[in-house]
Write a protein that binds this DNA or RNA. Structure first.
Lengths: 399, 399
DNA sequence: TACCTTTTCAACGGTATGCGAATTAAATAG
DNA sequence: CTATTTAATTCGCATACCGTTGAAAAGGTA
């Protein structure tokens, strides 16, 4: 357990103030004091220190004065966008998406590489990722030295603390120390995080969970992932490793274990199609879901029934997650949502059936079809969050 | 978010020291300093304050001096047993178990009432519980005024923060404010907690998880419960409510949803027996599982196959829990363990099959057949834990 | 234009915390 | 009886928070 000394105390309050400024846009000191319950004195001291460190900026121009415009006007404070730059990336089987953001999480540049990388040797993947990061940084008009942290979000079971990838559909090998590898290549601190965790944080910072302290997110991509927000923090399992929803067991059929991934994995849904012609080509290029959507509209019965089965399986899995975590909101993201109504309807129905009566109405299902940028932005947010906490603890006293 | 002031700092370090003393028996100040990473100065100040408050005691007698017996001898410190008294209770469908413990969690008296209370009106249950608490307190040679807190552990979905019982097999009604009811009756602060959470804490304090910071416990009783220890703390879902494992869905059969409770609930396993004769009588009296054990030994095939099916279902459920929490140890408790080898073997097999390959070997299954006292002692531990944190924050500065 | 009101924010003193160095305390070795 | 060793306390310092006070900035009013 960490020992509580003045330094920790300071760090906590600093983070609290900084986070308040981040979340509530340009904000005055008085309002910070109200929100954080800290005295105006303390807020003044902390903001002075933050200003001194260049993390925040005063805003004079465009002071939208309130109606009751008496007295000394408030000085609005906001994050200094230039305080840091980070790179966030979404690494998927058939595409790489990079984003450079400033300290506020605003996108400075983005780069999408629609290339298939899964099952490539690690060296090749690392090459491609390195290249993408460098390009995207140049696109933003920066050099890598100006980037503070890189965060790579990828599917699978990731051990966040150590940066080890326990298993991922992208890598042939297991237990890859990808964080060290990329840190060495880029000569920039690089962290590795589950893509589901990344977009969970994205929704908490910018998306559909800004108002919540607790929340669950289900990502339906090639891999089925889970992100849990508990008390404004990412809940990482024991040992800090991420969850792989696809490994959940839904039942014991005649021929053994039935896992969620075998019912609702992207390749399993699409795989039942005759692997020929335009559709197979689309799958190879990672456009499988978009194409599937078209086929469903054209009433392709094989695919529709696969989508329905997948929806049922996911709905039941979500009900089980809700049974365990009782979150007020469940956000669903990922390419499988593109399957459309047949999938979503059966998901909703199965969920309604499977959720225990005592928890009926507790959780609200929200579907979200964000673009890939958003995932990458989430990875950037993970990087920023790490920055918030660590390096400025060492700044020393405010004066 | 709580504001970090010196008071909080103090509370954290105080709790840390107190917890260290609790866990590591009689312990000297130097060793506390080593374990907590606090300076000897701070430890001295805090222990002085704790001594002043009467929460701990110095131990002079029987100073087992180490071999290397040079220098001033260490003064060992330990919890003052008399610093507080609490009552813990396990409330089950067919029995009430009460325990009075001292500040260390040691049992002073216990009382078991083998009576069937489920489906009684709330008033009747409250009467019986009140009576049991009072009796047990008298047995310990105390009066209720000397008891600081009462904690009742019972099955179902409990909202710990508010003391509301959302649903329980014991109550006909839902959403019962049992904590307020009993607080008023006993005129002593009474808290309500899930029985699974209680025994989870019991194992962390006294049992098979003393060495762990993360752990999962599965309780197999009339109701199937779950307790999660995360970072030395009970993990309570959003809103602080407990989990009901029985609501987990294991599959969609031909006639709809199949929940775990329908496969592995106590009444479901035993219910398939012809409800007549000695066995039915045993069930009514809450000895069902013991009797079932005998029948299984006598190779009652109906019962054996029910036990095997239940074992499979539980094994799969545990695998899913492990997929989500990745704990180093899973402890199984509860009356259903008495079903013996057929049940346990099929559980182990199903678990081995269902646990994802990437997590194989991560979690160790441990079976525990503690007596009912232990559950009640866990409830007492919950009460003690609340005491640790709250009331002595107000003690003021140490001097 | 000069003065007053209102509000923000920085400066000062008070009290709490924890830490490091020096000091006292208690026991053994010679 | 003295020297040595280890434990625990005391003292002084740095930091953090908070409440109060007073200066600064803007608008309103005579």
């Amino acid at each position: 357990m960490k020992t509580a000394d003045p330094e920790l105390m300071r760090a906590i309050n600093r983070l609290n103030v900084l986070d308040t400024i981040r979340r509530h846009g340009p904000i005055s000191r008085v309002e910070i004091s109200e929100r954080t319950q800290l005295s105006t004195t303390t807020v003044s001291a902390i903001t002075a220190s933050l200003l001194d460190d260049g993390l925040i900026l005063p805003r004079h121009e465009g002071d939208i004065r309130n109606e009751a415009a008496r007295g000394r006007p408030r000085v609005m404070l906001e994050l200094n966008p230039d305080a840091a730059r980070v790179v966030g990336a979404k690494i998927a089987a058939n595409r790489l998406v990079f984003v450079v953001t400033d300290f506020r999480g605003d996108m400075l540049s983005k780069l999408t590489l629609p290339i298939r990388i899964d099952r490539q040797p690690i060296g090749v993947i690392a090459d491609l990722v390195e290249d993408g990061v460098r390009r995207c940084v140049v696109d933003a008009g920066l050099s890598l030295e100006e980037v503070d942290t890189v965060c790579l979000g990828l599917p699978g079971v990731i051990e966040h603390r150590t940066g080890h990838i326990r298993s991922s559909p992208i890598f042939r090998d297991t237990n890859v120390d990808f964080a060290s590898e990329m840190t060495a290549r880029l000569n920039t601190p690089t962290i590795v995080e589950s893509d589901a965790h990344a977009i969970t944080l994205a929704h908490h910072w910018f998306g559909k969970a800004r108002d919540l302290e607790d929340m669950v997110l289900i990502s339906l991509e090639q891999t089925l992932g889970l992100g849990v927000l508990h008390d404004n923090q990412l809940f990482r399992g024991a040992g800090g490793l991420s969850h792989n929803l696809g490994d959940l067991v839904l039942g014991m059929g005649a021929r053994g274990i039935v896992r969620l991934s075998s019912q609702a994995g992207e390749s399993e849904i699409l795989g039942e199609q005759p692997a020929s012609g335009r559709f197979a080509e689309a799958i190879r290029l990672g456009r499988g879901m978009a194409h599937a959507q078209a086929l469903i509209k054209a009433e392709d019965n094989t695919l529709i029934s696969a989508a329905i089965r997948a929806g049922e399986a996911v709905g039941v899995a979500i009900a089980n997650i809700v049974t365990l975590f009782a979150p007020p909101r469940v956000i669903l993201v990922g390419s499988s949502l593109a399957l459309g109504e047949p999938f979503l309807d059966s998901l909703r129905n199965a969920y309604a059936l499977a959720v225990p009566p005592s928890l009926k109405g507790v959780a609200e299902l929200v579907f979200d079809d964000s673009t890939d940028d958003f995932w990458a932005q989430g990875a950037a947010a993970v990087a920023l969050y790490e920055l918030y906490e660590s390096p400025w603890n060492t700044t020393g006293p405010a004066f």
